[in-house]
Amino acid sequence: MSVVPAEVLPGGALGVEETAPGGGAAAELGPRARLWPSLAAVYRAQLSRARVARIPLLFVATFQSVGIMIMMRGVVDSRGEAQSVVAGSSVVVVAYVALNLLAQYFGQLRASGGLDHYATLPVPPASVVLGAAAAYASFTVPGTLVTAAFGCVLFGLPLGNLWILVAVIPLAGAALAGLGAACGLLAPRPELATLLGQLGMSAALLLGVLPPDRMPGIIRLARDLLPSTYGVEAYARTFGAHPDWAVVLVDLGVCAGVGVVSLAVATWAYRRAAVR
C-alpha cells in the first residue's frame, strides 16, 4: 500500500547515510517539554479522567466518612472528641482518594506498560508525578468540604473556621498523594500497590478518626508517624474559641515537609520505573 518510492524522497537517495557512525554532525533534537506547561497538561488530562471513571469512587469516599461520623455520634461524649472525629473523617476522604486511589492508579499504569507512553515523551518526571498528585488532591475537595460541613452540623461545632481546609486539603493532599504515588510506583506488583494503598487508608482511618487520648502508647507513636495526623490536628485545633495558630502552622508545616519529601521520592520512583 506504500506508494512513494523511497528514491524520490527529499534529502537524498536511500543508502546514503547522512551521518557517519560515531562521528559527524548529530541531528537537532526536538524541543523538551517544560515543567509547568506539561504539569498543567497532565493535571488537565487527569482531571478529565474523573468525569469518566472517578465520580462513583468520590461518592464512596464521602459516604464512608459521613457514615463513620454517624456511627461515632453515639459513642463520642466530649467536645474534644467530637472535634477529632470530624477532622479525622474529613481527612480520611483525602487519604482514600489521594493515597489509596493514586497508589492503585500508578500501580496499574506501571504493570500494564502505560508508563512507556510518558517515558517516550520529553516530559520532566516531576510534571507527570506532580500533575497526577495535584489532580487526585483536587478530586478530594468536594468530598472533604461536604464531610466537614456535615460533621460540624451533626456535632454542633462552629463552621466559622472551615476555611482552614483551603490549607489542609492541598498540604495533606500533597503528603498523602506523594506517599500514594511512591507506593504505586515502587510496588513490584499492582496487587501490592493496591494493598499498600488500602493499608495506608485504613491507618489514616483508625489512627485519625479515633480520639488519641484513649490509645495505648505504641499506637500513639504510630499515629504521630502518619502524615495525615498533622492535617487532622491542624483542622481539629481550629474549632476552639481561641485556636493556637502557631501550633496549627507547625502542623501544616509538617504536612508540607512530608509532602515535599514524599513527592521527591515519588518522582525518583517514577524515573526508576520508567526506564529499566
Binding site: 524541543p31 506498560g113 502505560g114 507512553h117 520529553p122
Partner: peptide, 14 residues
C-alpha cells in the same frame, strides 16, 4: 530518544 522519535507501543492504558 524522546526528542528524536515518536513511539506507539502496544498498550494504551495511559
Amino acid at each position: 530518544a524522546a526528542r528524536i522519535l515518536a513511539y506507539l507501543g502496544q498498550e494504551s492504558s495511559a
